[in-house]
Protein backbone atom coordinates (compact mmCIF):
# COMPACT_ATOMS: atom_id res chain seq x y z
CA UNK A 1 0.00 0.00 0.00
CA UNK A 2 2.93 2.36 0.57
CA UNK A 3 3.60 2.15 -3.17
CA UNK A 4 0.16 3.52 -3.90
CA UNK A 5 1.28 6.55 -5.88
CA UNK A 6 3.18 4.59 -8.46
CA UNK A 7 0.71 1.71 -8.48
CA UNK A 8 -1.35 1.20 -11.61
CA UNK A 9 -4.43 -1.01 -11.28
CA UNK A 10 -4.45 -4.05 -13.50
CA UNK A 11 -7.10 -6.52 -14.54
CA UNK A 12 -6.65 -9.92 -12.90
CA UNK A 13 -8.21 -13.08 -14.32
CA UNK A 14 -9.51 -14.83 -11.22
CA UNK A 15 -11.90 -17.62 -12.16
CA UNK A 16 -14.45 -19.11 -14.53
CA UNK A 17 -17.93 -17.65 -14.54
CA UNK A 18 -19.26 -21.00 -13.35
CA UNK A 19 -17.24 -20.67 -10.16
CA UNK A 20 -19.52 -17.81 -9.07
CA UNK A 21 -22.74 -18.48 -7.15
CA UNK A 22 -25.88 -16.70 -8.27
CA UNK A 23 -27.22 -14.21 -5.71
CA UNK A 24 -24.41 -15.04 -3.36
CA UNK A 25 -20.65 -14.58 -3.10
CA UNK A 26 -17.29 -16.27 -3.51
CA UNK A 27 -13.85 -15.02 -2.56
CA UNK A 28 -10.68 -14.63 -4.67
CA UNK A 29 -7.14 -13.99 -3.48
CA UNK A 30 -5.35 -11.36 -5.55
CA UNK A 31 -1.87 -10.81 -4.22
CA UNK A 32 -2.50 -10.18 -0.51
CA UNK A 33 -6.01 -8.86 -1.04
CA UNK A 34 -9.11 -10.97 -0.47
CA UNK A 35 -11.90 -9.91 -2.84
CA UNK A 36 -15.54 -10.93 -2.43
CA UNK A 37 -17.25 -11.38 -5.80
CA UNK A 38 -21.02 -11.44 -6.23
CA UNK A 39 -23.25 -12.34 -9.18
CA UNK A 40 -26.70 -10.80 -8.85
CA UNK A 41 -29.49 -12.03 -11.11
CA UNK A 42 -32.91 -10.43 -10.94
CA UNK A 43 -35.56 -8.97 -13.22
CA UNK A 44 -33.08 -6.35 -14.42
CA UNK A 45 -30.58 -8.90 -15.69
CA UNK A 46 -27.21 -10.03 -14.41
CA UNK A 47 -24.78 -7.80 -12.52
CA UNK A 48 -21.34 -8.47 -11.06
CA UNK A 49 -19.82 -6.77 -8.04
CA UNK A 50 -16.52 -7.02 -6.18
CA UNK A 51 -15.67 -5.57 -2.77
CA UNK A 52 -13.01 -6.24 -0.16
CA UNK A 53 -13.69 -9.44 1.78
CA UNK A 54 -12.52 -7.84 5.05
CA UNK A 55 -15.31 -6.95 7.46
CA UNK A 56 -13.88 -3.84 9.19
CA UNK A 57 -16.32 -4.06 12.10
CA UNK A 58 -16.14 -7.78 12.79
CA UNK A 59 -12.45 -7.76 11.80
CA UNK A 60 -12.53 -11.01 9.85
CA UNK A 61 -12.44 -12.06 6.19
CA UNK A 62 -16.07 -13.04 5.80
CA UNK A 63 -18.08 -10.64 3.63
CA UNK A 64 -18.42 -13.14 0.77
CA UNK A 65 -20.43 -15.35 3.11
CA UNK A 66 -23.14 -12.72 3.72
CA UNK A 67 -26.68 -12.68 2.41
CA UNK A 68 -27.23 -10.34 -0.54
CA UNK A 69 -30.37 -8.34 -1.10
CA UNK A 70 -31.71 -4.86 -1.62
CA UNK A 71 -32.41 -2.07 0.84
CA UNK A 72 -34.16 1.02 -0.42
CA UNK A 73 -33.07 0.29 -3.98
CA UNK A 74 -29.41 -0.34 -3.13
CA UNK A 75 -27.91 -3.76 -3.74
CA UNK A 76 -26.21 -4.83 -0.52
CA UNK A 77 -24.54 -7.66 1.33
CA UNK A 78 -25.13 -8.15 5.06
CA UNK A 79 -22.07 -9.03 7.11
CA UNK A 80 -22.55 -12.53 8.47
CA UNK A 81 -21.00 -11.45 11.76
CA UNK A 82 -22.90 -8.39 12.95
CA UNK A 83 -25.29 -7.82 10.02
CA UNK A 84 -24.17 -4.35 8.88
CA UNK A 85 -25.05 -3.76 5.22
CA UNK A 86 -22.46 -2.78 2.61
CA UNK A 87 -23.54 -1.41 -0.75
CA UNK A 88 -21.97 -3.67 -3.36
CA UNK A 89 -21.47 -0.93 -5.96
CA UNK A 90 -19.57 1.44 -3.66
CA UNK A 91 -18.51 -0.46 -0.52
CA UNK A 92 -20.33 2.08 1.67
CA UNK A 93 -21.61 0.83 5.03
CA UNK A 94 -25.28 1.82 5.37
CA UNK A 95 -25.29 1.78 9.16
CA UNK A 96 -22.01 3.60 9.82
CA UNK A 97 -20.90 6.78 8.06
CA UNK A 98 -17.32 6.29 9.16
CA UNK A 99 -16.97 2.77 7.75
CA UNK A 100 -16.58 1.53 4.20
CA UNK A 101 -14.77 -1.18 2.27
CA UNK A 102 -13.00 -1.02 -1.09
CA UNK A 103 -15.10 -1.70 -4.18
CA UNK A 104 -13.42 -2.99 -7.35
CA UNK A 105 -14.42 -3.02 -11.02
CA UNK A 106 -15.44 -6.46 -12.36
CA UNK A 107 -16.08 -7.69 -15.86
CA UNK A 108 -16.73 -11.02 -17.48
CA UNK A 109 -14.95 -11.73 -20.73
CA UNK A 110 -15.25 -15.04 -22.56
CA UNK A 111 -16.66 -16.60 -19.39
CA UNK A 112 -13.61 -15.49 -17.40
CA UNK A 113 -14.14 -13.23 -14.40
CA UNK A 114 -11.75 -10.25 -14.25
CA UNK A 115 -11.15 -7.88 -11.34
CA UNK A 116 -9.31 -4.58 -11.58
CA UNK A 117 -7.06 -4.04 -8.61
Amino acid sequence: MQAQESYTPQWHDVCHEDDLVTNSGVCALIGEEQVAIFRIVNGEGTQYFAISNWDPIGEANVLYRGIVGSLGGKTVVASPLYKEHYELATGTCLERDDVSVNAYPVRVDAQRVLIEL
Partner: peptide, 22 residues
Protein backbone atom coordinates in the same frame (compact mmCIF):
# COMPACT_ATOMS: atom_id res chain seq x y z
CA UNK B 1 -30.37 -26.97 -3.02
CA UNK B 2 -29.40 -24.37 -5.56
CA UNK B 3 -32.55 -22.26 -5.19
CA UNK B 4 -32.42 -22.31 -1.39
CA UNK B 5 -28.74 -21.76 -0.79
CA UNK B 6 -28.68 -17.95 -1.18
CA UNK B 7 -31.46 -17.70 1.40
CA UNK B 8 -29.47 -19.22 4.21
CA UNK B 9 -27.58 -17.43 6.90
CA UNK B 10 -23.90 -18.25 6.84
CA UNK B 11 -24.38 -20.78 9.64
CA UNK B 12 -26.86 -22.73 7.54
CA UNK B 13 -24.84 -22.31 4.35
CA UNK B 14 -21.75 -23.84 5.93
CA UNK B 15 -23.66 -26.07 8.36
CA UNK B 16 -21.60 -24.79 11.26
CA UNK B 17 -21.61 -21.89 13.73
CA UNK B 18 -19.49 -18.97 12.57
CA UNK B 19 -17.23 -17.62 15.30
CA UNK B 20 -15.74 -14.14 15.64
CA UNK B 21 -12.71 -14.87 13.45
CA UNK B 22 -14.69 -16.45 10.62
Amino acid sequence: QQQHQPLQDTNDTYLGNMQKDG
